[in-house]
C-alpha cells in the first residue's frame, strides 16, 4: 500500500509535467452508481452554510442540496475546506458540486453553474462612528478592508480598486482571511476599517457580535446570482440538479427556506444568468 502510494505520487509528478489530463470527474451516471453526491463546502458562511452546535452542516444551501439529492435518490457527503481551496479542488475533481458561488464570467469559463438558488448583494460593514460612513468606493479610498481570500467580494473590490487608481485615487488596502469571523476580529481591533461581503452574511455577523457597535453602511458593487458550481465534465449532472432546483422552486420549498434563513424572499433568474463580462 505504502509503496504503491509512493509509485502513484511519482506518476502524478511525471504527469504533472505534461499537465492537461482531465481529472477523473464523475458523470451523473457515476454519481448515481456510487449513490452519493459529494459536496465541497466552507461552512463558515451563515446563513448560507454553517455548522450547528453538534458540528452538523446546516443552512440554506445544504437544505436545498439535501432535498434535491433525496429526489435523485442520492445521499449527501460533505468535504469541508477553506474557500480558497474549493474552486481549485472542484476543477481537480475533488467533489461533485460546491454551493454558494457568485456567478461570474471568469468562473463560468472553467466551471458550470446550476440555476441560481439566491442572489447576493455585497455590502460594507463598519464600526458605528468610525472612519467609514458611506459605502461609496471613493469614500473607502486609502482605507483598509477585510475580505475572504479569493472570493467574489474580494475580486470585485480589486476591480473597484483599478477604477480608483485610474481616477488618481489611492486604492483600498485589502486584507484576505479565511472566515468571516476572522474579518470581524480585524475590524473589531481597528486593523481594518471595514469588511466587504454578502449583505445577509454581514447582517448575521452583526447579530453575533452585539458586543461591537457594528453597522452595515450600505451596498457596494451591485448584485449577482449565486449558484452551485459543477465540474465542466458533468454537464448531465448540472442539468439534473437544475431540474431539481426548478422543481423545488415551483413547489414553494425554496421560498419557504428563504423566509426561514434570510427573513425575506428573492426573485431568482432561471436562464441567461451568466454575465458576459
Amino acid at each position: 500500500m505504502n509503496l504503491k502510494s509512493l509509485g502513484i505520487l511519482a506518476l502524478a509528478a511525471v504527469l504533472g509535467a505534461s499537465a492537461a489530463v482531465p481529472a477523473g470527474a464523475a458523470s451523473l451516471k457515476d454519481v448515481k452508481a456510487k449513490g452519493t453526491l459529494v459536496v465541497g463546502i466552507d461552512p463558515t458562511f451563515s446563513p448560507f452554510e454553517f455548522t450547528d452546535s453538534t458540528g452538523k452542516i446546516v443552512g440554506y444551501d445544504p437544505e436545498i442540496i439535501e432535498a434535491a439529492a433525496k429526489n435523485l435518490g442520492l445521499k449527501v457527503e460533505y468535504k469541508v475546506m477553506p474557500f480558497s481551496g474549493i474552486l481549485p479542488a472542484l476543477i481537480a475533481g475533488g467533489f461533485d458540486i460546491t454551493p454558494t458561488l457568485n456567478v461570474t464570467a471568469e468562473r463560468a469559463k472553467r466551471i458550470d453553474y446550476v440555476v441560481p438558488t439566491a442572489t447576493s448583494t455585497n455590502a460594507v460593514l463598519a464600526i458605528k462612528g468610525g472612519k467609514v460612513a458611506s459605502a461609496d468606493i471613493g469614500a473607502l479610498s486609502g482605507l483598509t478592508c477585510a475580505v475572504k481570500q479569493t472570493t467574489q467580494p474580494e475580486q470585485m473590490m480589486q476591480k473597484l480598486n483599478k477604477e480608483l487608481e485610474a481616477s488618481g485615487k489611492k486604492p483600498v488596502e485589502l486584507l484576505g482571511f479565511e472566515t468571516i469571523d476572522q474579518t470581524i476580529v480585524a475590524l473589531a481591533d481597528g486593523r481594518a476599517q471595514c469588511v466587504v461581503d454578502d449583505k445577509s452574511v454581514l447582517v448575521e455577523a452583526v447579530g453575533k457580535r452585539k458586543d461591537l457597535a457594528l453597522v452595515v453602511v450600505g451596498d457596494i458593487g451591485g448584485s449577482t446570482p449565486i449558484g452551485w458550481g459543477v465540474n465542466k465534465a458533468d454537464a448531465d449532472l448540472t442539468a439534473a440538479l437544475s431540474a431539481e432546483v426548478a422543481k423545488l422552486k415551483a413547489d414553494g420549498t425554496i421560498k419557504k427556506l428563504q423566509d426561514k434563513y434570510f427573513g425575506y424572499t428573492m426573485e431568482l433568474p432561471e436562464k441567461d444568468f451568466i454575465p458576459a463580462q
Binding site: 481529472a23 477523473g24 481537480a92 475533481g93 475533488g94
Partner: peptide, 15 residues
C-alpha cells in the same frame, strides 16, 4: 501539489 497531483493520477478527492 500532492492533492492536485493525485487528482491528475485519477485519485481526486482523496483528502
Amino acid at each position: 501539489v500532492v492533492y492536485f497531483g493525485l487528482a491528475f493520477a485519477g485519485l481526486s478527492g482523496q483528502a
